[in-house]
Design a protein around this nucleic acid. Structure first.
Lengths: 412, 412
DNA sequence: GCTAGTTAGTTTAATGTCTTAACATATTGA
DNA sequence: TCAATATGTTAAGACATTAAACTAACTAGC
């Protein structure tokens, strides 16, 4: 039961019903394609006439196209299959990380075009923006599109490892990039002209990628949590099919709930945050038996040693490495338990480098989750891994642009 | 941007627009009454014709009534004021607590009728139910209604200090009552016949009371958190005007996120939960310097000593009492910081006995909140006290029954 | 006390959308 | 070839918002 905000509601107009049904049709085509008009009528529990009218509108707008005819086992006219039409424009997704920036170009409905490319991240904002322009033009030319495509592109979605103000397009604080109060969209506007630019935090972007995935098999669309573990811990929470954003666009910072308020210092300044226990750095620190935070000069031994290396060592019999992973797993589970107690989601998705070792750590994670969840049901909450090769951040970046076409209209 | 669940959506029918606007009109009358048709047209940014049609329907259904004519300063016809019509039926709210059970009878829109009554809670479910029947009939007769009113009543809302399964009407676990897997609605049905019965957890009920308050001045309807502190810590989270319920109806259990995983034992079995630091019992334990959990035999000194007594002592110069309150305040703030980091709500409401001492503890709470919140904005999140005399739990219980009439229709 | 001007509320006709029913189209199998 | 069946379209009806004209009621000024 939702209450209506008397200060911010949307009245129904003549066209509201159509708008609602239109979006439902689009969603159903997206998740069920190929699908016929008659199928849609059955799925929506309405008559075919209504569907015809709705689909004709979508055909005219070129959001949907007719494809080959399907075949029926039974007698009767063959259905005409409908597909989402993707040749309207392109969207650009960018995943900005401290080490490298990754880029994906998709069609207007988020299907990948060409290869994912990666290039070094420039830390100076101005340099960053101009190198980005160059890379985008290069990538476009590689898939045979002129540089002018940028102007007609549907938008650019950009995922930042830090806090962003979506409205103003300002990066509030991205410690790993050394960015504070950087007016990024302003700078980008100069490089890319009028193209719409959307910023988002990386944990939330991953959650978006799950909600708006074009794969039909993604479950728990409506109440789920995405936990992304890398240099920090990012959490995106989906409630009722919508990303929880919060008043200041900072909702979901579960990474800084404490495991112990007297625990190790966290990058946020506080002590004992979950992040301070399970970030890649924290895990490596435990392995090396000392603090290897970025602020301190790193020894030659540790400077290029990544979590992937640790996993490799653990797999090849390094007991100390395995112990480090197991303790990370335990802390991961203890924190997850808090998230599960708080949100009670249908699904928890986990992303990040450490998921490569999921077979090694899963029992420890689940054990710790069970230990601190309040009921047996909560302890059994479904936890799933999203492998890095699915590029959840990049897909989330793209969803920032492409999702709008499928979103439910705001009503009441 | 909300995504549409392809497996659970609601199509718009011919009547959907009307249904939406009808509920908006009802909501606006609720929050703005007395209000004229012309006012509504302005508020909704539509023409008066549409409003006339909608209001006529509501008048026919007797949900709304016309009242006295208003007066205009300017020339022109006087407006006819509209009011919610409350003489359709009654609703019964019950707040079941370990010590006593409280009851409030309201009209169909949640306005209190008669006095709030309290009576001892029977711990045996069968006895509890029959004593409840007796008390309800007595209360009805006191306001001049026959016992048969129960059958025609809009419903009974009941708040339980523990976990409940709303769908099946089972109290899963209410440690303070000693109830486990009690099929409460089943028992109640025998006593009250066909009357609809709704169960809810107490923390969430408080949140409901805020969303559905008939007072127009309640802010942050759409994203807020209600923290209720008494024997335990209950948290209700409101996202987009809707109570966050979770997959198993247990969302919002922030009371069991840890402050320190090696901290004191909590009633849930785990260690160092927030609740184990800030519950009334925990605060009293710190004052007496020893654990006075319910499981252990209490000394004569402590058995009847309540948090209110502690506050009285603190006010009359007992330094030790003040210290105990201040440390509770600090822990309260540290936990609140986690809630704020996670949810980023527009408002945090706090209820419970300790709020009587708010003037004594506010600085400590806010200091601790600032200490662990991630941004300055989060640290300044508005925190408000809901005094016990507003009976948030009881009002939440009533809202379980009365809110339905005002809820936004589910759409898309 | 009359009239012009103004606001509230209603009626009527126009328009857009879902809905029902009839119809055309295409296919299968006897 | 024809009956049966399923898909898709068309036309008319039902129901909603919307715009415009209209009635009702009131104030202020002469």
């Amino acid at each position: 039961m939702r209450s209506i905000d008397p200060k911010d509601f949307t009245r129904a107009t003549r066209g509201t019903s159509r708008e609602i049904n239109r979006q439902i049709v689009l969603t159903l085509i997206r998740t069920h394609q190929p699908v016929s008009r008659a199928d849609l009528a059955r799925l929506m529990d309405t008559n075919r006439a209504n569907i015809t009218l709705l689909v004709n509108e979508l055909l005219e707008e070129k959001l949907v196209r007719e494809g080959a005819q399907g075949s029926l086992r039974a007698p009767g006219r063959k259905p005409t299959f409908l597909y989402l039409n993707s040749d309207k424009g392109i969207a650009i997704g960018l995943d900005v990380r401290a080490s490298r920036t990754f880029m994906m170009i998709t069609d207007s409905i988020g299907k990948q075009i060409g290869e994912i490319v990666g290039f070094p991240t420039k830390f100076d904002p101005a340099e960053f923006v101009s190198s980005l322009g160059w890379q985008v033009r290069k990538a476009l030319s590689e898939i045979g599109l002129p540089a002018s495509t940028i102007a007609s592109c549907e938008g650019i979605g950009m995922v930042i490892p830090g806090m962003v103000d979506r409205e103003s397009g300002v990066v509030i604080n991205a410690p790993k990039l050394g960015w504070k109060q950087v007016h990024l969209t302003e700078l980008l506007a100069k490089e890319f002209g009028g193209t719409e630019i959307h910023l988002e935090n990386s944990g939330r972007a991953c959650a978006l990628s799950q909600i708006w995935s074009t794969r039909g098999d993604v479950q728990g669309q409506n109440n789920s949590v995405f936990v992304s573990i890398s240099d920090g811990v990012g959490v995106g929470v989906v409630i009722n099919g919508e990303l929880m954003r919060g008043k200041h666009n900072t909702a979901g910072e579960f990474g800084h709930i404490p495991l112990s308020i007297d625990g190790p210092e966290c990058s946020c300044g506080a002590h004992g945050c979950w992040e301070a226990y399970v970030s890649n750095l924290a895990t490596l620190s435990r392995y090396f038996g000392r603090n290897i935070s970025q602020r301190q000069p790193a020894s030659i031994e540790t400077i290029d040693f990544t979590i992937e290396d640790l996993i490799t060592r653990a797999r090849s019999g390094d007991g100390k490495a395995l112990t480090a992973l197991h303790s990370a797993a335990r802390y991961l589970g203890l924190g997850l338990a808090s998230v599960i107690n708080a949100i009670d989601p249908s699904f928890v998705y986990i992303g990040g480098e450490i998921t490569e070792a999921w077979d090694l750590i899963e029992p420890q994670v689940r054990e710790a989750v069970k230990e601190r969840t309040l009921t047996r049901e909560l302890g059994r909450t479904s936890i799933r891994i999203v492998p890095a090769m699915e590029h959840p951040r990049l897909r989330g970046a793209v969803a920032l642009v492409t999702a709008r076409a499928f979103a439910a209209p705001k009503v009441a």
